[in-house]
Amino acid sequence: MSPIALGVEFEDPVLERSVRAGLNAIEAQLRAAVDSEDEFVAGAARHLVDAGGKRFRPMVTMLAAQFADPSRPEIVPSAVVCELTHLATLYHDDVMDEAPVRRGAESANARWDNTVAILTGDFLFSRASNILADLGPYAVRLQARTFERLVTGQIRETVGPRPGIDPIDHYLAVLGDKTGSLIATAAEFGAHYAGAAPDIVESLRTFGEQIGVAFQLSDDILDIASESAESGKTPGTDLREGIATLPALYALRGTDEADRRLRNLVGRALPDDAEHAEALRLLRSSAAMDEARATLRDYAAMARETLQTLPDVPARAAFATLTQIVIARTG
């Protein structure tokens, strides 16, 4: 079978045809949704769509829909809403992070400026809202709650953990809001609009959040472990900016005297190229990376347990394969 998205291979040909047809329809509607009569607006809005991406959220929607009737007409536009929302947050994130690269291409804020990037993100949110209006109150309410979590997660990340809150617990909660919530919604949209039973919808929503956090943790690890820009960003971007992802947080929590230099480096911004390279080298070989990988495996294990509550259909096996790939991609 030919791979879809993250290298997932489906053993069931009927499942593969259904998911592939859905993803093709989503891609077409996504490109239509970012189009505009204004040439500049259209170009800015297409920038990240044209850069590619894994289309992880649309695939989750299509797989979740397989637990009932994947041909229902609301499924594809609901997936487009999730992908538009995701793309909009990327434009805003790049401004906040001052990121020069996204998905291997020049970021919108680097190509144009921060104002254009922010307004382009807002434009995509507006297009998502237009589609939501046709889907009805259920979709509008779910999107509003999801957007609340996205914003809350960003605020919590910006402010940092409050006194008495463990930084690692805080970070994992932020990931649940910033990444897990939208993937959970992608799964809920697919299952709900396919007509799945409420308990199946809830299990898929839970799985979506768990695999979403695992997916972000794998990106965090890959960002440190990779020698190239496999994650779609410049390796070690967060480290350079002094943003502590899970590997750095585990390093900061350590007490081994041999790791004092590592703690000194990852506890601050690293504009100096030599210090940045040193921090990457030390972190890659540290126990903190092993701890981060163990946490990733824990979330993947929770996701697999949730899958066991679902009917034994080909889509469940595909989700199980996807869970394994999320771990395997970190090496």
Rank of each mutant, 00 (worst) to 15 (best):
3 P>K: 09
3 P>D: 06
5 A>T: 15
8 V>G: 01
9 E>R: 15
10 F>R: 03
15 L>Y: 06
26 I>F: 01
36 S>Q: 12
39 E>C: 12
44 A>S: 11
45 A>H: 00
49 V>Q: 11
50 D>P: 01
50 D>V: 10
55 R>K: 14
56 F>C: 04
57 R>N: 02
58 P>M: 11
58 P>W: 10
59 M>K: 09
59 M>N: 05
68 A>P: 04
69 D>S: 06
79 A>Y: 04
84 L>Q: 08
88 A>P: 06
91 Y>P: 00
96 M>A: 10
98 E>A: 14
103 R>W: 08
108 A>F: 06
109 N>V: 07
111 R>Q: 10
113 D>I: 12
118 I>Q: 01
118 I>R: 00
123 F>R: 11
128 A>H: 08
130 N>I: 14
133 A>L: 10
136 G>T: 02
142 L>W: 07
144 A>E: 13
146 T>I: 03
151 V>F: 13
153 G>W: 05
153 G>L: 13
153 G>H: 09
154 Q>L: 10
157 E>Y: 04
159 V>Q: 12
159 V>D: 10
161 P>V: 00
162 R>V: 12
164 G>P: 14
164 G>E: 09
165 I>C: 09
168 I>W: 02
171 Y>F: 15
177 D>C: 11
177 D>H: 04
178 K>P: 04
183 I>E: 02
185 T>L: 13
186 A>F: 11
198 P>N: 07
198 P>R: 13
201 V>K: 05
209 E>W: 05
214 A>Y: 00
215 F>S: 09
216 Q>F: 04
224 I>K: 02
225 A>T: 10
231 S>Y: 03
241 E>H: 15
243 I>L: 12
259 D>F: 14
262 L>K: 08
264 N>Q: 14
265 L>A: 09
265 L>V: 03
270 L>H: 08
272 D>C: 11
289 M>Y: 04
290 D>N: 12
296 L>H: 01
297 R>L: 10
299 Y>E: 00
301 A>C: 10
311 P>K: 06
315 A>W: 13
317 A>T: 15
321 T>Q: 15
322 L>A: 00
323 T>A: 02
323 T>N: 05
323 T>Q: 01
326 V>D: 04
327 I>R: 03
331 G>D: 15
